[in-house]
Computed example of a mutant assay.
Amino acid sequence: MAVSNADRRNALLAAAQQELDALAARGVRMRGNAFSAIVLVKGELNANELAGGELLAGADGAALAAALERLGYAPEEFCALSAIAGPEGEGAAPEVASGRPLPPALFREALETLDPEAVVLLDDTAASLMREAYAEELARIEQFDMAMLAPGLVAHVLGRRVLALDGFEAALADGRAKQRMWAYLKQLPPLGAPY
């Protein structure tokens, strides 16, 4: 008996959901569209996020959603990933402690599972974790500042565009810093037309 396209799609969705659930059980916090072309990584969580609130649910998330929409991403076309571990479930690795940075291997596993075409590192904590998790790949980049994920430079890591910002949430309080963040983000338009 032939398998229909709908059955294939449902099987793929179920497998993806199982992978995401396994990551969440190990302390990985995510929000948004897991099939998104862009992932926003936040490491410096605000008090609400540290208390278990949704990632990027405040002014920073609204500003990022508006900026991405202006760039051509569909409104639902982003995923937030925390560089800081959340509460672990039953299958958590012993090295994952809530409120501490994710182990680099677990962060890398989460990012590879999401498999975006672009990654925005919203703060220094997120950039530091990316440098550690992808040290080998970054070491192959000839331009030193780009290999170190200097803010505002787009690095290409395993076929992904990676852009580090130097404190997006803090920049919202300063007009000039907001303009700088917008200038950085404009370097990451969608590769294809939004759906």
Rank of each mutant, 00 (worst) to 15 (best):
E77C: 07
A85K: 12
A173K: 13
E88C: 15
R131E: 08
A177C: 02
P103V: 05
L138R: 06
F168T: 02
A139Y: 09
L55P: 01
E88I: 13
M148Q: 13
S128P: 00
R140Q: 14
M130Q: 14
P87F: 10
F168L: 13
L68W: 02
A47F: 00
L23Q: 07
D145V: 01
E76L: 15
E137I: 02
I38C: 10
E76P: 00
A92F: 03
A150E: 14
A164L: 06
E136W: 09
A51S: 13
L50E: 14
D174F: 01
A16W: 07
G86M: 11
L12A: 14
E54D: 15
M130K: 08
A6W: 09
P103N: 05
A66D: 15
R161G: 09
D166P: 04
I84T: 14
F35I: 09
T125K: 13
A11Q: 11
A59W: 03
L111M: 14
A6M: 11
A171R: 01
A110N: 07
L23E: 08
A62Q: 12
F144T: 15
A66M: 09
A164K: 04
L138A: 02
A135W: 08
L106N: 04
L68F: 13
A80R: 09
G159M: 12
G99Q: 10
L81Q: 05
N10R: 09
Q143H: 12
A24K: 11
P94W: 11
K42R: 13
P75F: 04
A171K: 01
L149M: 03
L122H: 04
L55Q: 01
P190I: 06
D7A: 15
N10G: 02
C79W: 05
N10K: 07
V39R: 04
C79N: 06
A177W: 01
V3S: 10
L111V: 05
V96S: 08
R176M: 02
F78G: 06
E117K: 12
R180C: 00
A51M: 09
L172E: 04
P87M: 12
L158Q: 15
G167Q: 10
L188N: 02
G99V: 09
I38Q: 06
K178Q: 11
E90P: 12
A14Y: 00
A15C: 00
E76V: 13
L149G: 03
D115V: 06
L40T: 06
A147D: 07
V119M: 06
W182S: 06
R31Y: 08
A47P: 00
A25H: 12
L163H: 04
N46V: 12
P101C: 06
L114D: 12
E90S: 15
P101I: 03
